[in-house]
Structure formats: C-alpha cells, structure tokens
Design a protein around this nucleic acid. Structure first.
Length: 1024
RNA sequence: GGGUGCUUAGCUCAGCGGUAGAGCACCGCCUUUACACGGCGAUGGUCGUAGGUUCGAUUCCUACAGCACCCACCA
C-alpha cells in the first residue's frame, strides 16, 4: 500500500466494480428495505443539497444491504415542468430561436434532447458521490410507465368526482403565462405607496357623506371595481348601506354599490375598501359572500370583471391584442399541437375572443388605458385621478409583494379556468395517517408543520399552461362539453360521441407535483399488474423511509401520503426523515446570485481558483455582482479547492447532519475528515506490515497470523450476520489490550446500531471516528507494538489476529459512510482473514465489501475487567506524559518510575502492563516502594489509590513542579469542597437516590486520597 | 398577526436533572521504525437574560431579548 491515501486512484475503479457485480440490485431475500430517491430535476446540476441528501440515503442503503435486507434504492429523475421549460426556452433564445417559432411537438422534441444531456450529467454526479442505487430500475417521470399512472390517476379521480374544472382566481405569472402554486409564490416586503382615492356618492342626501375615500396599493385595478365595502357596524357609513346609495367609479363612470362586510377593518384608513373580485383574493372572498344575493347580477360575468390580458396588460380589442401581445398569442400558437400556419392564427384569435367574452367589460374601459402594461396603466390612472382632483393622498407604504419564485415577477391574482383536486377528504385522511403514527416524522416536530398546512388547505390547482409535462386527458367538443378518458377513444366512448364529432384535447399539462405525488406506486408499476409484480409492488410499498428537506413537505410529502393511500390503500413510507439545508460557512443560503455555491464534484476532485472564479461569475443575472463575487471567492479560496475525495465529503455530510438543523458547510471539517481517511489507511498499513512475513522486522521470524478467528461469547442476533469470530475455534485473546479493544468495538457497534435507527448520522460518524482514531489507533495499535515485539510468542500472534479482526470489522462498520476507501483497504485485508462468509458473491465471482455482512455488537465479547484495567493503564500513562510535557523532560529521555500505596489490584496490574508502560512512557525502570521506604522528592501522578512517582534526581525543574502541584492541589481542594458541601446538605442525603449519594461519597474519597498524595509531595518539594 | 427552531469553548456543533464534551483553530514539545494528512501535552465556558419547580437546573416550566425559518387576506 502507498504511504498515503489517494482517493482519485480508487473511486472510479470501485464504483464500476460494484455496479458490474449487481450489488446495487435488490438481493431478493431478506426483509425488504426501500428508499425512494427524491427524483432530482432534470434542469439542474447536482448541488450540495443533493450531495448531503444522497450521502444520508446511501449510508442507510448500504447499511441495510449489509444487514441482510432485500434492499432497493429506487432511482429516478423528474421532468420539472416549469423549470425545464424555462431552461430550454432560454437555451433556444441563445440559439436565436424564438420559442414561438416552434409548435408543440417541435418544442417537446427539443426538451427531450436537452433532457438526455442534462440527465447524463446528473447521473454522473450521483455516481461520483457513490450512490449505490439500482440504475437498472431508474425511472423518469415522463417515461411511459409513470405517465400511464398519471393518466389513470387523473381519470379515476375525475370519475370519483374528486377532480373538477372550474373558473377561479389563481396565482398567475404574467411572464410565463401560467397558473402557479401558492407554494411557488414568495411574498417579500417592498416599498410602495398607498394611494387614497375619492369615490363620489351619486345624488348625496343631506346628513349623509357625499363621498367615500378608499385606499389602495394597486390603483390600476379600480377599472375592475364592483363595489366599496365598509364594516356593517361602522356608523359613518350605515346610512349609505341601508339606503342603497351608489358611487360613481372614477375614470369609467360606472355605478357601484356600497356593501357591508365583516372583513373590513374599521381602524384601517377610512374604513372603506374598494372591491375588485377578479384581481384580489380578499375581494374575491367578499364577492363570494355577496354574489348569491344578486348584488352583482346586473354586471357581466356576475361581477367578476377581469381587466387584464394574460400578460398583465389592460384589456384591449382582440386585433390589438394579437398585434401588441405577440408573445402571448404565439404562446397559444405553439401550444396548438402540430398545427401550423392559418390554423394557429385562427386558434389563437378564438382563444382571445373567448377570454374577452368571459369578461365583457371592454366598453367600460376608457380608450387611453387599453393595452397598457399594468405599471404604465398605474401611472396613467394616477395622473388622471390627480387631474380630476380625486387623488386625495399618496403616501409611502410597506407592502408584501407576491413574486413567482422562478421568474421573480409580480404575481397577479387572475381569473381563469383550471383543473382542481378537491382536498377536504384527502386532507382529513392525510392528517389521520400522521396523527395515528402510521407515518412518523423524524424529527417529530415537523408533524405540526404538516398538520398546520393540511388543516388550512385549499383545493389543489393541478393544471398549468405549459407544454412540457403530462397532458391533461380531457377533450372538448365544439359546444365546450368536457370528456375525460384514458385516451381520445375512451373519452369519445364515455361521452357517447360518434367519430364525426371533432374533439380537441386540453392544451394544458399537469403540474409536476401531480406525478410526483404518485411516485411511490407509479415506480412500482401501478396500475399494470404485470409490471407491479415485476417491480415488487408488494415488497417495496410502503417504502421504509423518505429522506428529504422540509421545503417539500407540502409540495410532495403530504401529497404522496394522501394519494398513495387513496389509490393503493397503503402508506408511501413509514418514516420521513427531514434534514436541514446546506448553507455556506457563514450560514448563507447557497445561490448562484450570491456567488457562494459549491459543487460537490469540485470538493471531490478539487478545482483551481481560476476555474472556480469562472464558474461563479458566468451567466449571472446581475453581472455587476461579478466583481464582488470574485473578491470574496479569492479571499476564501486563494488556492482554489483541494481534492478531498468522495469519502471525505460524505463523512463530512454525515458528521454535520445533526437533528433538525441547517448545516453550515465548512471546508475545514472536510479537510479533517480527509485526514481521517488517511489515518484509517495508515492504520491498515501498520496492520498489514505486521502480519506480512515479508515486512522487514518480521522477515525470518516465521509464521503469519494463521486463521483469524475469534470467539465471541454472545450469539449474533440475526441469522444474516456472520460470526466474524466463530465460536469453538478455540483461541482466546491473549492480552488485556485485545479484550479491551474487542469490548470497545462491541460498544461502538451497539452505539452505531442505535443511532442508525434514530437517523443520527452525526453520532454514527462521531462514534466511529472516536473508536478508530482515539481507541484503535491511539491506544490499541500503540499497545500492540510492545506485544508484537515482545518475547511472548502467543501474545504476539494473538495480537496480530486481533489487529486484523478489529480492522476488518471497522472497515465493515465504516463502509456505509466511506465506501471507497474501505472497499480498497478491505481487499488488502480480507485475504489475510481466511474464507469469507459474506452474504452474497458478486456475479463476477469476486467478493466485495459492499455485500458483506455488517458486524453486530454481539459478534464481540465484552470484558468489563479489561475495560477497567486499560482505563487504569491509560490514566497512568497520561499522568506520566503530563509530567513529561509540563516538566519539559525530553521525549527520548528514559525515566525511572516508582509506585507507592495502591490497593490489591494495582500490583498485578503494574506487573501485567510493565512492558507497555516501559514502551509507551519510555520508562527505564519500574519499582514498588516498600511500605517502610519513604517517598523521595518526586513529581507525582495519582491513579486511584496508587501513587506514581518520578524521582527528581536532576530530571525535574523543581519550581515548575512546585507550581504544577500548587495548581493541582487548589483545583482538587475546590472539587473536594464542592463534594463536601453536597454531602453536608441533609436534604441531599435524604432525598437524592442512594446511588447518587454513594457516588458522591466515592468521589469525595477520591479527592481526599489525591490531595493527601499531592500534599505529601508538595511538602517534600518545599524542603528539597 | 400566528407558529417552529436556535442561543453551550475563538469557530462549528453534540449533550443533558446529579463531576460541562468533541472537531477545528490557538499555544508548547517532538521528524519515536502506520500516518507531520502525524504524535504527546496544555489553555480556554458563571451553558442568552430574569424568575420558578427541585435536595440539586446548562438540562424541566414561565417571561423576556436576539437570530433564523415557516405560515397568513389587512386594503
């Protein structure tokens, strides 16, 4: 083995071998364990969030595979409707192709082309991270199988009356010209104005107000006002309401009523609110309350007066619309399937006209506003109001502005026809499944987030005015009749329509999350029974755990729970592990615009400063940020980023995965864990050197380690797990140190098992790190050195075996976190261990660590006595080393050691470990003082009852030791005092549990013994 | 406006009714034959503030402050 570990050299090799061996596929036996990969969007590249999430999932998958589960990691990717459509449109634009120049089929073909490239790059990234998912089963959401499930689900829901088409106010993105989800709208506080406008009362009566003043942040919408609302108990306005007074709507001259509604806050502004039901969600709600009583019956569309075109211009006549709003029309054009030319224009015009028919108020909109963009219209409206003396006040105002999270455009509430899923029944069931504990959130507190959202849910708008996605399986006849079916023929048949009736399929597609909601069973072949059988529907549904971020609890998790239950009667998964967001080292969200994005592949392979700068400053939305980003990047990474390798990156992610927290990604942690991999590598080198007959010191000395088989005393708890150390092979560990390390291994594995069950990846990493570095390397390997070189041949051979066995178990235990380096080392180690008892053999006949059995705690015996003994030895060696360090005794200098006092166990211990003490503390001689002997002036360490003395004899700086003693004495005095205080408190002794009191007494005793010893020496030093 | 989480060593974070921990950074010594991507040792914290419960609170409760995030219709 090389002297240090080089990740690059091994990663590609092992990934290819794992995959070729079939290790990623389910084994077909054992308890099923399944994780669904949250399918990455085909738009993206892999980011740190993926790296993090994938590391956690792969650790779980590898762990369970090694535990003998029939393990499936269902891979896939997501077509990501809006995001992909935007990316491809932008790309076309860069090639000088207007999206409008392509028809539907052509556009979709371009998306597929792009998907193939992008999908490849994501897949490549996933492989580099080491994901051991089953590629042969990977599914794309637009593939035939999941697409069929989408159609089937839609049709069934429609037949069950759970899907309907309706005209409602939705969040509308005027640039994308599609409805978007509430969840895709982000409200940000922005500076704006609050304008107060005077609406005059028609024919005012004496004693009543002759006008009202309403406040608005969006004056342009007043063209669609249908009323002014006041609070029913507001005495200023009761007579206006009671006497049915009407107001003159400025600029249009329309007459509108004054209505009373509880929604109005009397304290805000003048207590009067303009009501624009087609352009405001609150006003829409008011409209819903008042329309049934006929308040708006005289108005077109019962008062839902839409004044905007789809691109948020004020309505204008159809021809003008076609001319001025070319993009909008073209948008409709290319959505016309493979139609071309005249057909397209005709379809477009018809669409516009029908939109206007639904909101026929064009005549009430004065000419000067028609066709204006919403912000231009605002200016003009305000100027005109001002000129007429109707603008009462303009004052600066902070308001929440809704913006689309994709386009950053201001979102309009917009009246359109859309498809909806009725949510009340689903929500109820979704709540039940979580409240009953059938689905558990980890950490648990996410349950309340889920509950809160489902308790306040609206019907789910599932249609999008996009091209890329699953097309809605609904057809329209010339009369506007709607026919839903699995295909056109079925729709026709169900509607009883002859072949002479012309049908047009709905142009819209389903929002991406609709197909995502079906993922747990659509990936398992549903609804096709043959496919279901093939893909293990019965085995892998429910899946075991969903690993995902909190940001998609609503988008995805809740909907999977509801729809999976509805269609399969099963849970999608039993547990949901919610992890945090990966942020940069200052806690900032990583984003392209901030220029603080890290690419996991750059951490694996390293990247030069120049390449990193180029990456971070290319294609910025705000190019002026480039300078700032460059400066910050140069400062943080003056030499670029070194290659850490996939293992180090994975271990970092695991170690940072504390419960319910975002993680700040710190490169220094990553560096530390690369060192950890190197440490493991070198520990392996040490072990191998010492078991190889050809190692320089071993040459000629004879035999190798023999069969490394050891007797654990406990039965393994699972049949799937091999005995690392089969019983009856007869050989017992020869030394205390071996029994100790095997005990520590037992405890570490028990901890790992517990923490895997709790998804505490940070604690898994910590337990294994500590065992590897602080126990195996720092102590066992060091203790092994004198044993290997000593005269006791049995101890030497036994130690060799134990080194090998513990290393082997450790490689297994670490494999789920750091698969590459452990696999590589294992192939050096395994041949020394004798015949493998792995779970499976790869198809190429070569065994791999990835399919070996995970070691269980019970494979290794506990020896509590050995634990105590080694604890004693460690305390002794630490004590001596501390004196050495503080007294500046040169490390190479051999020193004499005297032991004094002590209890019955100390003498045999000192005897047992004398060689270790001599080697590890560089001790020339060890001797017990006879009871009659007086202690010489010495530096002292107290281990339990025993005193360890290093005689001064010219070795020790007297003043330094006096100072050290003084400090130590005062520290122990204060501890003793605290202890005495506690025990002096009658309440403590009376009320605290007996064992706590007992423990406190023991501590007090310990302090006293130490104090006595230290004081004795202090006295001697005073006179020395 | 409602909700959730966080506040522990210089930094990043574990922990938790009964002796305050880790990694990194910092300081000292050491090229000791696995590893300088290393070894040994040392320093460093009234556990956000104020109350309460308890024999005992960093831990449980209450209030407050600061930070972060989520949800929400105040024109």
């Amino acid at each position: 083995m090389d002297k240090s570990f080089d990740p690059k050299a091994i990663e590609a090799k092992w990934y290819a071998r794992w995959e070729a061996s079939g290790a990623f596929a389910p084994s077909g036996s054992g308890e099923p364990y399944c994780i669904l990969l949250p399918p990455p969007n085909v738009t993206g590249t892999l980011h740190m969030g993926h790296g993090f999430q994938h590391t956690l999932m792969d650790a779980l998958i590898r762990y369970h595979r090694m535990r003998g589960n029939d393990t499936l990691w269902q891979l896939g990717d997501d077509h990501a409707g809006i995001a992909t459509e935007m990316v491809v449109t932008r790309q076309l634009a860069a090639q000088g192709i207007a999206r409008a120049d392509l028809n539907r089929d052509q556009f979709i073909e371009r998306v597929w082309q792009w998907k193939r490239e992008s999908g490849d790059s994501i897949e490549q990234g996933i492989r580099r991270i080491g994901d051991s998912g089953d590629w042969s089963r990977a599914v794309f959401t637009m593939d035939p199988m999941p697409s069929r499930a989408v159609t089937e689900a839609f049709v069934r829901l429609y037949e069950q009356g759970l899907i309907y088409r309706g005209q409602k106010l939705v969040n509308w993105d005027p640039v994308l010209k599609t409805a978007i989800s509430d969840l895709e709208v982000v409200s940000t506080e922005e500076d704006g104005f609050l304008w107060s406008i005077r609406y005059d009362v028609i024919d005012p009566r004496p004693g009543e107000p002759d006008h009202l003043v309403v406040a608005t942040t969006r004056p342009e919408t007043m063209l669609g006002d249908v009323a002014v609302a006041v609070h029913p108990d507001d005495e200023r306005y009761t007579s206006l309401v009671a006497n049915k007074r009407r107001l003159r709507l400025p600029l249009t001259g329309r007459e509108i009523p004054v209505i009373a509604d509880d929604y109005v806050d009397r304290e805000f502004g003048t207590g009067a609110v303009k009501v624009t039901p087609a352009h405001d969600f609150n006003d829409y709600a008011i409209w819903q309350r008042h329309a049934p009583s006929g308040t708006f019956a005289h108005l077109p569309n019962n008062g839902l007066l839409n004044v905007f075109t789809p691109s948020a211009r004020i309505l204008h006549d159809p021809d003008g619309w076609v001319q001025e709003d070319r993009v909008s029309i073209k948008n409709l054009n290319y959505r016309g399937d493979s139609d071309t030319g005249a057909d397209i224009a005709k379809t477009a015009l018809e669409a516009v006209e029908s939109a206007l028919t639904e909101s026929p108020i064009l005549e009430s909109i004065p000419n000067q506003y028609r066709g204006l963009d919403r912000y231009d219209a605002r200016k003009t409206v305000l100027a005109d109001l001002d000129a007429q003396g109707l603008l009462v006040e303009s004052k600066p105002h902070k308001l929440m502005v809704p913006r689309g999270d994709r386009t950053q455009q201001v979102i309009e509430p917009y009246l359109t026809w859309q498809w909806f899923v009725k949510m009340d029944g689903f929500a109820k069931r979704g709540l039940e499944l979580v409240e009953s504990g059938a689905v558990k959130f980890v950490p648990e507190n996410w349950t309340s987030t889920y509950r809160h959202w489902l308790s306040n849910i609206q019907d789910w708008c599932i249609s999008r005015q996009l091209t890329w996605g699953h097309r809605i399986p609904a057809w329209y006849d010339a009369q506007g009749g709607v026919h839903v079916g699995r295909d056109e023929a079925e729709a026709r048949a169900l509607g009883g329509l002859g072949s002479e009736v012309a049908l047009t399929q709905d142009h819209d597609v389903l929002e991406t999350w609709f197909s995502s909601a079906l993922w747990p069973f659509s990936t398992m072949g549903w609804p096709d029974e043959t496919a279901m059988l093939e893909r293990g529907y019965d085995k892998y549904l429910p899946s075991s755990v969903l690993v995902t971020g909190f940001d998609i609890i609503f988008f995805w998790v809740a909907r999977m729970i509801m729809l999976t239950d509805h269609f399969s009667g099963r849970l999608p998964f039993r547990e949901v592990y919610i992890h945090g967001l990966v942020r940069d080292k200052d806690g900032q969200k990583m984003s392209k615009s901030k220029g603080n994005v890290l690419d996991p592949l750059d951490l694996i392979d390293g990247i030069s400063l120049d390449a990193l700068l180029a990456k971070r400053t290319a294609g910025l939305m705000q190019p002026q940020m480039a300078k700032k980003i460059e400066a910050a990047t140069r400062k943080e990474f003056p030499d670029g980023i070194p290659a850490f390798g996939a293992d180090a990156l994975r271990f970092t992610f695991a170690a940072l995965a504390g419960p319910g927290r975002d993680i700040k990604f710190d490169l220094e942690r990553c560096e530390g864990y690369k060192n950890f991999c190197n440490k493991l590598w070198n520990a392996a080198r040490f072990v191998l050197m010492n078991i190889e007959p050809f190692s320089p010191r071993e040459r000629g000395r004879g035999e190798g380690p023999g069969e490394a088989q050891w007797a654990g005393t406990n039965e393994p708890s699972s049949g799937a797990t091999r005995h690392l150390l089969p019983e009856g092979e007869g050989k017992q560990p020869a030394t205390e140190a071996e029994r100790w390390i095997l005990t520590r291994l037992h405890r570490t594995l028990a901890e790992v098992e517990t923490q895997f069950a709790a998804y505490r990846f940070d604690l898994i990493a910590q337990a294994l790190y500590e065992f590897t570095w602080n126990e195996f390397c720092d102590w066992f390997v060091e203790l092994a050195k004198p044993a290997l070189n000593g005269n006791d041949k049995g101890a030497a051979e036994s130690t060799r075996r134990t080194l090998l066995v513990v290393l082997d178990a450790l490689l297994h235990a670490l494999h789920p976190l750091i698969p590459f380096v452990t696999e590589e080392i294992w192939h050096e180690v395994a041949p020394k261990l004798g015949p493998s008892t792995g779970l499976r053999t790869g198809i190429d006949g070569n065994e791999l660590l990835i399919t070996q059995a995970y070691p269980l705690a019970s494979d290794f015996a506990i020896d509590a006595q050995a634990e105590r003994d080694i604890e004693w030895l460690r305390a002794l060696l630490s004590g001596v080393r501390r004196i050495r360090g503080e007294m500046d005794i040169p490390p190479g200098k051999q020193i004499p050691l005297l032991f004094a006092a002590g209890d019955a166990s100390d003498r045999p211990r000192a005897q047992t470990f004398s060689a270790s003490i001599a080697f590890l503390a560089r001790v020339a001689s060890q001797r017990w003082l006879e009871p009659a002997e007086t202690e010489p002036a010495s530096a002292i360490a107290v281990i339990g009852d025993m005193r360890v003395l290093i005689p001064l004899a010219g070795l020790i700086d007297l003043d330094a030791e006096r100072a050290r003693l003084k400090k130590e004495i005062s520290r122990i005095e204060s501890e003793k005092k605290k202890s005495e205080g506690k025990l002096g408190n009658a309440n403590f002794v009376a009320n605290a549990p007996a064992e706590v009191v007992e423990q406190e007494r023991a501590r007090l005793n310990g302090w006293s013994v130490q104090l006595d010893a230290l004081r004795d020496q202090a006295l001697r030093l005073a006179t020395a």
